[in-house]
Design a protein around this nucleic acid. Structure first.
Length: 664
RNA sequence: GCCGAUGUAGCUCAACGGUAGAGCACGGCUUUCGUAAAGCCGGGGUUGAGGGUUCAAAUCCCUCCAUCGGCUCCA
């Protein structure tokens, strides 16, 4: 007899060789029906897995967090089977993982189609239809374990799968694997770790979403495959909610809203990735800069300004040219000297540091600049404001001694948190990027001892201060480890905005020194930080995050006066002047439209407050306040409104203080 | 840069081998009106650019440019 120890502590006896599905059935038929897979001693397995001896057994149902990945993984197999049925057995399938973190996609499979066969979005519908037939057929998925040799033979003989051959070879070479598992459903066979759903009929709701090119193994030197993206859920309702979320994100797309709200524009004759900031965008930029300057002044930063172009020599010294040249605009030559447009501000700030001798008493020195930089991003990488070629960074460099590092670093993290609170960003994670040994001297400066030391310092600081973080290898900057801050917008889409880098290499290249207590020269550390990212990416994010409904302090126009007839134009103008005197951005709509049309126009521009003034208001010296989300909130003395909105702006309130909070 | 899709008036779209059209926006006139669109008239397009096929091209083909979805890369 085998023993299954259940999560409630009970021990169930089943005959040797009975499957975990039998255990589920013995607990109850409803559970057996809902079961997706099982966890045996903390290992995820198929329901058909036989039991022997004593094990902890937990049945995985759609409610469990592991279930979704299994569902989606099985759906990729169904998709590959459908694709093979429709496009012939010469179709090569490569890898097809489930995605559970992505905003949009739930899985993909990369295919290599025979020459001349082209699969596009137009084909998705018939692939879905074939998938549905496979689901309806309720084909059982059967697992078998085979030696790598016979698995290779089977996949090649029956299915002509050359990529699988390469993958198995790699497993043998890399991990010394001797056996692999294969899954079969109907005529379809694939190599896969599993586990999978017991049969294809257990896929309640799925949809294919997009096709795309993707390099084999993610390497741009390899062949480009055709990727098909889709998603799957345990209920039709969840799928529909997911699709609605995607639609909502589209409605909030910063490119669409940025055009409608006249925040920025691109022009073919100016060039790709080079945004023009329209007056409304100019206002948002001004407000962000005002915020940053205020916060940085409080935190002891000093503002500096540096040129946009510089001689080649500076970037040779900084090390940008060997490591970063392909992201830089090519040089221009003047009087025999090469000049580059700057992709980063740091070398200039280093020069400011070294413009005089520095004592340990001067440290830390924090140099800040909203520096305009230019990077030559590859054409296919440009997207609206989120990826541009000209950008203005909320940049600063903190020069400090090693024993000041932790305090300085944490002060920067606290600054992030302060901003996140202000913008209503609720979820964030620090993504800590470290070097990879193999790429020392290529992607990274070649000094392993300093890499390890610095990384350790950062890690200890993050842990010691309870900062949530994840660690990723091989994504550091060339001069030191990097912390990117991932945040999530109100619709749940992930953005990487702010960045923070610890530079142990370049200060040395610039011979930056300070005189320490013992009258010795010492090289400072440099922390690069950009909590508000670039104007471009930050504003792109904020547009989506707020769906264009900026809080009053950021709104390009904060109040719109709506006279009911021409007779009130003069009174409206008086109120506008009062608002302007209090620093409020407001205008009067003197067009010959009716009030309804004026309101509609102001609503569409997402102006926080509309002030309707008719004969009644003009006589009483009041304004009828309409808040963009709450609607009519009643009349008040003009002076009272001015005071209230001025306060809302001064405190940078996230929500209207004049109307009940509403869900956007 | 690579794979795929798309490109018609300022914006959103129609015309799908036979003289380029609508709504909004814009200009003029009329209307003076109580919380999301008053009415009439008018101006506006070498159909992304260049080449080709055809009696005839927005429409079919080629090259380039730009945009979108991804890959690679990244603030």
């Amino acid at each position: 007899m085998a023993k299954a120890k259940l999560p409630d502590g009970k021990v169930m006896e089943v005959p040797d060789g009975a499957s975990v599905k039998d255990v589920a059935a013995k607990i109850g038929p409803r559970l057996a029906d809902a079961a997706v897979a099982a966890k045996v001693d903390d290992r995820l397995v198929d329901l058909a897995t036989p039991l022997a001896g004593e094990h902890e057994v937990r049945i995985v149902t759609p409610k469990d967090p592991e279930a979704l990945e299994i569902l989606r993984h099985t759906t990729t197999h169904v998709m590959a089977q459908a694709v093979r049925r429709l496009f012939g057995d010469q179709v090569q399938y490569t890898i097809g993982p489930a995605l559970t973190e992505d905003f949009q996609y739930g899985f993909y499979y990369d295919f290599d189609f025979p020459d001349g066969v082209r699969v596009t979005e137009g084909d998705l519908e018939r692939i879905e239809a074939e998938m549905q037939r496979i689901v309806d057929a309720k084909l059982p998925l059967a697992r078998k374990v085979e030696s790598t040799e016979s698995a290779k033979r089977e996949l090649l003989d029956e299915h002509h799968q050359r990529y699988k051959d390469e993958m198995i070879e790699d497993l043998v070479r890399g991990e010394g694997v001797k056996e692999v598992s294969l899954y079969r459903q109907g005529e379809f066979l694939d190599m896969c770790r599993g586990p999978h759903l017991p049969d294809t009929g257990k896929i309640p709701a799925f949809k294919l979403l997009a096709t795309a090119g993707a390099y084999w193994r993610g390497d741009e030197h390899n062949k480009q495959l055709t990727r098909i993206y889709g998603t799957a859920f345990f209920s039709r309702k969840e799928l529909e909610e997911h699709l609605a979320r995607i639609e909502e994100a589209k409605r909030r797309d910063h490119r669409k809203l940025g055009k409608e709200l006249e925040i920025f524009a691109f022009d073919d004759e100016v060039g790709p990735g080079l945004p023009l900031w329209l007056p409304a965008g100019g206002v948002i930029i001004e407000e962000l800069e005002r915020l940053a300057k205020q916060v940085e002044a409080e935190a002891g930063y000093l503002r500096v300004r540096t040129p946009h172009v510089t001689k080649e020599d500076l970037f040779i010294r900084s090390g940008h040219l060997p490591y970063y040249a392909e992201s830089m605009y090519p040089p221009m030559e003047l009087e025999g000297v090469k000049y580059y447009v700057k992709p980063m501000n740091c070398p200039f700030h280093h020069k400011i540091f070294s413009s005089r001798t520095r004592s340990y008493r001067d440290l830390p020195i924090r140099l800040a600049e909203y520096g305009a930089c230019y990077r030559y991003e590859k054409s296919g990488e440009l997207t609206g404001l989120l990826r541009v070629r000209s950008m203005q960074m909320n940049d600063a460099h903190i020069y400090c001694a090693e024993d000041q590092f932790e305090d300085e670093f944490i002060a920067v993290v606290r600054m992030y948190e302060r901003y996140f609170k202000l913008f209503g960003i609720e979820k964030f994670v620090m993504r800590f990027s470290t070097h990879a040994k193999a790429a020392l001297g290529k992607k990274y400066v070649d000094n392993e001892r300093l890499w390890l030391k610095t990384e350790d310092m950062v890690r200890r600081t993050l842990i010691g201060n309870n900062v949530p973080y994840v660690e990723v290898a091989d994504e550091a900057a060339f001069y030191g480890p990097k912390i990117d801050v991932q945040i999530w917008s109100a619709v749940g889409r992930e953005f990487t905005l702010a960045t923070n880098q610890v530079d142990f290499a370049v200060p040395g290249r610039f011979n930056l020194v300070f005189v320490n207590r013992n009258n010795e020269e010492e090289t400072p550390l440099c922390i690069h930080r950009a909590p508000l990212s670039t104007h471009e990416r930050m504003i792109g994010f904020l547009i989506e995050h707020y769906a264009g409904n900026f809080p009053a302090w950021l709104a390009p126009e904060q109040a719109r006066l709506v006279p009911i007839t021409d007779a009130q134009n003069e009174y409206a103008e008086k109120v506008r002047a009062q608002l302007a005197a209090a620093g409020v951005r407001a205008s009067v709509d003197t067009s010959s439209e009716r009030m309804n049309a004026k309101i509609r126009k102001a609503q569409k521009m997402k102006i926080p407050y509309m002030l309707v003034v008719g004969a009644k208001e003009a006589d009483a010296g009041t304004v009828s306040v309409r808040e963009r989300a709450a609607g009519d909130v009643g009349a008040m003395k003009a002076g009272e409104f001015v005071a209230k909105i001025a306060d809302e702006i001064a405190t940078r309130a996230l929500h209207s203080t004049l109307a009940p909070a509403k869900v956007s």
